[in-house]
């Protein structure tokens, strides 16, 4: 595929004797909105970790934006344009919200493009990002003061701050209310319109179905379906995986 942003080929990951991912092939087109679903323990987060360099895969390759990612440490992948939010929010607890966002701005945007040279520019951008996720007004508070929901928004803001080409949102919506899910979906859609490719990992089917252009299903570390969302959910194998025989 000429227009593929992310190409994963025959990716396998083992934890001791346990096979977490087995020969996964996946290709994501530029500008695509991809939904990734699967039961708990099916390897979704492991796949994200292998894509982002948090874990190293034993075999197979990850190619991003025409570059080979294998062997690159996580921070270099972030600089190339791969950003992810963590499933369980991992804020920097001793830094204020503003400073939490400052880290990716300083180490990704500034390091990559030389933009945001002055500290005033960085401050302005941090404030913009906080407003984007609805956390303005808490700029000088600490992550410890936030609710779980706000923490997820911060997590997302930090990933967006890195100005990625591909954003992987790992269960950014768990525990959120209807309106909040709508807010986040709108935000992701807006980012997508700006040209950011998005992989959405989610358990909330309503959100996945309305957002994704394509749906991929992982079960026990294997990809069992890949296609248009309404076709995929009717796939007998997917139904079996979710509802049992």
């Amino acid at each position: 595929m000429a227009n593929a942003l992310l190409v994963i080929e025959n990716l396998s990951k083992r934890f001791g004797g346990f096979v977490a991912l087995e020969e996964v092939n996946l290709s994501v087109t530029r500008g695509e909105r991809l939904g990734l679903i699967g039961p708990n323990g099916s390897g979704k987060s492991t796949l994200v970790n292998c894509i982002c360099g948090t874990l190293t895969n034993e075999s197979g390759t990850v190619q991003f934006d025409g570059q080979q990612m294998d062997g690159l440490p996580a921070h270099q992948r972030t600089r190339v344009g791969l950003a992810r939010s963590f499933q369980l929010p991992r804020p920097f607890p001793s830094l204020t919200l503003l400073d939490n966002l400052r880290i990716p701005l300083l180490y990704t945007v500034q390091a990559r493009s030389g933009l945001l040279r002055s500290s005033g520019d960085v401050d302005t951008r941090c404030a913009e990002l906080l407003q984007l996720v609805g956390l303005d007004g808490k700029a000088n508070r600490w992550p410890g003061d936030l609710t779980q929901v706000e923490m997820r928004k911060l997590e997302l803001a930090r990933a967006i701050a890195a100005e990625p080409k591909l954003l992987i949102a790992d269960e950014a919506m768990a525990g959120l209310s209807h309106t909040e899910i709508e807010d986040i979906l709108k935000l992701l859609a807006r980012l997508n319109e700006q040209g950011i490719t998005i992989i959405l990992i989610e358990h909330i089917m309503r959100a996945v179905m309305s957002f994704s252009q394509r749906l991929v299903v992982l079960v026990s570390g294997r990809k069992i379906a890949d296609g248009p969302p309404d076709q995929v959910v009717r796939d007998p194998e997917v139904e079996r995986a979710y509802l049992g025989q």
């Binding site: 982002c52 360099g53 948090t54 440490p73 996580a74 921070h75 972030t78 600089r79 950003a83 992810r84 963590f86 991992r90 804020p91 920097f92 607890p93 001793s94 830094l95 880290i103 990716p104 180490y107 990704t108 390091a111 930090r158 990933a159 701050a161 890195a162």
Partner: peptide, 10 residues
């Protein structure tokens, strides 16, 4: 604070 998150932030 968090090395893994630091790496992910570049």
């Amino acid at each position: 604070d968090d090395e893994l998150a630091a790496e992910a932030a570049g």
